[in-house]
Simulated scan of single mutants.
Amino acid sequence: MQEVLLLVKTIRSDIQTLQTKLDKFVKTHSQQLKEEWITKEEVMSILNISPRKLQTMRDNGTLPFSQIDGKMYYRASDVENLLKHNYSRR
């Protein structure tokens, strides 16, 4: 009986350790996604919009961007925030 109780305690401890490691991993992964930069093609695919609509969103400041050598980059977190901001439960 003592062996079974010891085994249960060991398993609980292992589960708690795994849960702690998993929580840290999820937070780290989530932080990396928020700092990830994506291309205009990815943004258009995610939002299902045309190149012209994306241009309009850049022009009116709806979606911030970075440009290097004519290529546009967007933060994944900005696209996510745009989606959250425009979320409707209707």
Rank of each mutant, 00 (worst) to 15 (best):
M1R: 07
M1K: 07
Q2W: 04
E3M: 02
E3L: 02
E3I: 02
V4P: 00
L5C: 00
L6Q: 10
L7N: 04
L7F: 03
L7R: 09
V8A: 03
V8H: 01
V8R: 09
K9G: 05
T10K: 11
I11D: 02
R12V: 11
R12I: 14
S13G: 05
D14T: 05
D14I: 01
D14K: 10
I15W: 06
I15N: 08
T17D: 08
T17M: 03
L18P: 00
L18Q: 12
L18D: 09
T20K: 15
K21I: 13
D23R: 11
D23T: 11
D23N: 12
K24E: 11
F25T: 15
V26W: 04
K27A: 08
K27T: 09
H29N: 12
S30C: 03
S30P: 00
S30I: 03
Q31S: 07
Q32N: 14
K34P: 01
K34T: 07
E35T: 08
T39S: 15
T39C: 09
E41Q: 15
E42G: 04
E42F: 04
E42Y: 08
E42T: 14
V43F: 03
V43Q: 01
V43Y: 03
M44R: 15
M44L: 05
S45G: 09
S45Y: 14
S45P: 01
I46D: 05
L47F: 10
L47G: 08
L47V: 10
N48W: 05
N48D: 13
N48H: 13
I49H: 04
I49D: 03
S50T: 15
S50A: 07
P51A: 07
P51V: 03
R52M: 14
R52C: 10
L54Y: 05
T56L: 14
T56P: 00
T56K: 15
M57T: 10
M57S: 06
R58M: 12
R58L: 02
D59T: 14
D59C: 09
D59G: 06
N60Y: 12
N60L: 08
N60R: 14
N60S: 12
G61M: 10
G61P: 05
G61Y: 13
T62N: 12
L63P: 01
L63A: 04
P64D: 10
P64C: 08
F65E: 03
S66V: 06
S66F: 06
S66D: 04
Q67E: 14
Q67L: 13
Q67P: 05
I68K: 15
D69M: 06
G70D: 07
G70C: 09
K71N: 06
K71D: 02
K71A: 04
M72L: 14
M72T: 11
M72C: 13
Y73C: 06
Y73P: 04
R75V: 01
A76T: 06
A76Q: 11
S77G: 00
D78E: 07
V79H: 07
E80N: 14
E80S: 13
N81Y: 10
N81E: 10
N81G: 03
L82E: 01
L83H: 07
K84M: 09
K84G: 00
H85V: 06
N86L: 12
Y87F: 06
S88Q: 13
R89L: 10
R89A: 11
R89P: 04
R90C: 09
